[in-house]
Write a protein that binds this DNA or RNA. Structure first.
Length: 852
RNA sequence: GCGAAAGUGGCGGAAUUGGCAGACGCGCUGGACUUAGGAUCCAGUGGCCCAAAGCCGUGCGGGUUCGAGUCCCGCCUUUCGCACCA
């Protein structure tokens, strides 16, 4: 029984502590002193305005880590900002008539408040918002530097175009081939756009992945696949009718003697000439047009199709005439848009050859293959190592494939008919957006001088505020006369301003460096500070950025490095991807599987119904359209932010997807209540005198908890860290008759619990008469000697059967163990003349002596 | 199709190295206190069995080992990624 004022009431204490932390600016880090530095960073959010409990996970996780690091005495930096440009703001403007700026700023205010309400402390003195001219000005500056170096250029490319909205769409805005907003079918269009030349960095971005020891393999693999490095050779195949050659790319030049035909992409520039005198020219052209209209996906669904051009090429090594085909499976965007086909050793070529009855010639055999070659094509198919040999291939016969690849490459270069090359799947980064709410690209079009960059001293090119948002006629910027009309800085004549804005991924590709000198008006960032604090030691964010943001950021970091602005090439040393929090929603099959609002679900015998029909539960991402969003307000009002924090981290390993459960929350709350009530008793026990010392079991558990929680922080195992604190607290609860003697152990519990439940621990810490801000007190250190049990049980097993056991002091020396065996009558008699197979010493556990 | 990861109670999940499977929490069962309990506290909770003893238990089938959730081989299932990249 507790007096009312002693009850755990999160509502009474949480806002008080949040205010104190804010007033004392506890999270502000002096960036000038970077010794013992630890730069941790959560990916900055897009301020959409609705943070639900699922969003809380990675911020809570980051805050717990930050508080732990501070208690460890690290100079930890933990800033936060806003990825504030983007489409949703503009859509809100169109739908609701709110200016994107107002919409964004009010969302930022709301989300900032929400972070505070979760007890998350950031260094707000370093806050940045990408929509602020003081920030995007440096986007423009960066653009100009890249432009100067040829890394930003204007060129033609196929893009997603919505004919109704008259604008280019981001990939995320295309759903099942349709415009997300108006539902019109999106078409591919060749348009002049601005690009960043990320392909220049393909090799460095690929090679750099190997050094990222602390990145999840999954992300590295995804980036590797995306970059798609392939080493091989470009080789010219002479075409007598054209009087010149067609260049192909292959990763397997060692198979060139097996190349029995060429296949060109239907879009290949030489196709028109090749079929110009073909008797069925019209039919082939019709087919080409059909294929061109198909997306890659559609082409694959069609299956492999081709047409014979009626013309032949010369295989430069066999000197044979080989037919030239067109194939829907050859992509113009990759390599040279032409391939040599080796049907014996490539699955796709094999399928094509089989379908059209083309020649198959085997040129690889397995090493161990007995006489009587050839072996089956399947076995030799992918053989690229020393277990295989090249056969029937002139100068390379008998070589292993790797050796043959080298040899052919050399030969091709010697003959001047090609080169060894490395090709990448990666394409240049299209950064143009025909949108208002983004960084204006600082370029001008002058009738006399052509493309002219805006001089650096004229930056920022500010976004005008007074533009109309109709959502119908493309980029509002283009209609803003005062913005568009400018003077050419070269000739002083009339010029038009570029009205495209930048992809918002440009904003996020260097923001981590800006946090270090966020208000600097003279440069993009302070290189001295950047070199002291970069790279980011721990980066936390969702897996959805595995490629886009993380690849762009790695690219821009290298570009900044090459500009001499920063020493590092890799911006993020450690990467952690938290899993999503999911929630059950209910679909109504009778209504075309539409989602049912939670309020309309009736429960009968534990099953969900609506209107007498059973609903289908489905667990997934929280979203408004599924009516399964859990807002944090009610939860916090009822149980407190500490409860949400503890529950969120306890629910599952943080990298895993985890289902939100209303019942589960209660467990976390009860845990905090118990710790609280126990604290009151222990404090009162201490002041009433007569404090017996804590039992050895409590001290042992305490050291085990310190050790366990510390180790688990290092490994991001927050769920088990919390469970070990529950064990520790349960044991304290079992010894409350010693209340007064538990003070030291209890204060340790508060410290270990602080990163998870900061408000409650601060309050209790203060109730114990300690100075405020557990944050600045020292993280306890475990004494390994005190972690061990006093005695261990030696279990003697014979052939897996228990034959006896005995307790000995811990740790037992090996001769003690042997003596224990000797003392055991049963074993002794049985053991005579036999040998001890193995002894295992497990600290604090059992010792099994197994004899045979 | 290719590649990767993972399969443990009613549920979320524990189990440094091959060493007491199911920690911790939810839920459930019983009890206490109650006008009441959706509050709190206590006890129990993998299965078979009234209970005990015992036996069986980490997707399935083999194997290695004194000993396997963990290692090896072969399947099945799920999730994620890539998807004609020559």
């Amino acid at each position: 029984y507790c007096a009312p004022h002693m009850q755990y009431r999160p509502g009474d204490i949480e806002e008080k502590w949040q205010q104190k932390w804010a007033d004392a600016r506890v999270a502000e880090t002096g960036v000038t002193a970077s010794g013992n530095k630890f730069y941790m960073l959560n990916m900055f959010p897009y301020p959409s305005g609705d943070l639900h409990v699922g969003h809380g996970r990675n911020y809570i996780l980051g805050d717990a880590l930050y508080r732990y690091l501070r208690m460890q005495g690290r100079a930890a930096l933990n800033p936060m900002g806003w990825d504030a440009f983007g489409l949703p703001a503009e859509n809100a403007a169109i739908k609701r008539g709110i200016h994107p700026r107002e919409w964004t700023l009010s969302n930022i205010a709301r989300e900032k408040k929400q972070f505070e309400r979760w007890g998350i402390i950031y260094d707000w003195s370093k806050e940045i918002a990408s929509c602020h001219p003081g920030y995007y000005r440096w986007n423009q500056w960066l653009f100009l530097q890249l432009y100067r170096r040829g890394l930003a250029y204007r060129g033609k490319a196929p893009v997603n175009w919505c004919p109704q909205d008259q604008t280019v769409l981001a990939n995320e805005q295309v759903i099942d081939g349709r415009c997300e907003r108006c539902g019109a079918e999106v078409v591919q269009r060749d348009l002049e756009q601005w690009f960043f030349k990320i392909t220049d960095y393909a090799d460095r971005l690929d090679a750099g992945l190997d050094a990222l020891e602390h990145w999840p393999d999954k992300v590295k693999t995804m980036q590797r696949n995306w970059i798609g490095r392939s080493a091989g050779a470009d080789i010219d195949f002479p075409i007598p009718v054209l009087g010149r050659s067609i260049r192909i790319f292959t990763t397997r030049p060692d198979t060139i003697f097996g190349a029995t035909f060429l296949v060109l992409a239907p879009e290949h520039p030489d196709v028109a000439k090749l079929i110009s005198d073909h008797p069925d020219r019209a039919a082939i052209e019709k087919w080409i047009a059909e294929v061109r209209n198909q997306s890659n996906l559609e082409r694959q669904e069609t299956g492999k199709e081709g047409r014979f051009t009626g013309k032949y090429a010369i295989n430069p090594f066999t000197k044979e005439e080989i037919p030239i085909w067109l194939g829907n499976f050859v992509l113009m965007q990759y390599g040279t848009g032409a391939i040599m086909s080796v049907p014996a050793h490539d699955q796709r070529d094999f399928e094509f050859a089989k379908q059209y009855g083309l020649a198959v010639r085997i040129v690889i055999a397995m090493n161990e293959t007995p006489p009587g070659w050839p072996l089956s094509m399947v076995e030799a198919f992918t053989a690229k190592d020393d277990s295989a040999r090249i056969v029937d291939s002139g100068l390379i016969t008998g070589l292993t494939p790797p050796a043959a690849i080298e040899r052919i490459g050399d030969e091709v270069e010697r003959l001047g008919i090609g080169n060894k090359t490395v090709r990448y799947r990666l394409r240049d980064w299209l950064i143009s957006r025909q949108r208002y709410w983004g960084t204006p690209i600082p370029m001008l079009y002058c009738d006399r001088c052509g493309l002219v960059p805006v001089p650096e001293e004229e930056l920022p090119v500010e976004l005008p505020v007074d533009v109309p948002f109709t959502g119908r006629e493309g980029n509002p910027l283009a209609k803003h006369e005062a913005f568009v009309n400018a003077k050419c800085p070269k000739c002083g004549g009339a010029a038009r301003r570029e009205t495209d804005t930048m992809d918002t991924f440009v904003d996020s590709s260097w923001y981590y460096a800006r946090y270090l000198s966020p208000r600097d008006t003279t440069r993009i960032f302070d290189s001295k500070l950047a070199n002291a604090w970069l790279p980011v030691d721990q980066y936390i964010g969702g897996i959805e950025h595995a490629i886009l943001h993380l690849l762009y950021a790695r690219f821009i970091c290298r570009a900044l490095h090459d500009l001499g602005l920063v020493d590092v090439e890799e911006p993020f040393t450690r990467l952690f991807n938290q899993g999503m929090i999911t929630k059950e929603g209910y679909r109504d099959p009778a209504q075309g599987n539409s989602w049912v609002p939670l309020g309309e679900v009736e429960w009968r015998a534990g099953k969900p119904y609506r209107g007498g029909l059973e609903l289908v539960p489905e667990t997934g991402k929280m979203s408004k359209s599924r009516f399964n969003v859990v807002p944090p307000d009610e939860l916090i009002a009822r149980y407190g932010a500490d409860t949400q924090r503890v529950y969120t981290l306890f629910i599952a390993p943080p990298e895993k997807e985890a289902p939100w459960s209303e019942e589960g929350v209660v467990g976390a709350y009860r845990f905090l209540v118990r710790v609280w009530n126990m604290g009151i008793q222990i404090r009162d026990g201490a002041t009433s005198g007569g404090a017996p010392p804590a039992p050895a079991a409590v001290l042992r558990k305490m050291h085990q908890a310190i050790d366990g929680v510390t180790r688990r922080f290092e490994r991001f195992e927050f769920n088990t860290a919390i469970s070990s604190l529950m064990e520790f607290s349960n044991l304290l609860g079992d010894h409350l008759e010693h209340a007064g003697g538990l003070r030291e152990a209890y204060l340790v519990l508060l410290k270990l619990l602080h990163p998870f439940a900061p408000h409650m621990t601060e309050e209790m810490w203060e109730m114990f008469g300690e100075k405020p801000f557990v944050l600045t007190s020292k993280w306890p250190v475990a004494d390994p000697a005190l972690m061990q049990e006093d005695v261990v049980t030696i279990v003697v097993q014979v052939n897996g059967k228990l034959r006896g056991q005995i307790e000995v002091p811990n740790p037992p020396a090996e001769d003690v163990v042997m003596a224990a065996v000797q003392k055991n009558e049963k074993v002794q008699s049985w053991v005579a003349g036999k040998t001890v197979v193995k002894t295992i010493y497990v600290p604090g556990k059992l010792v099994n002596v197994v004899v045979r």
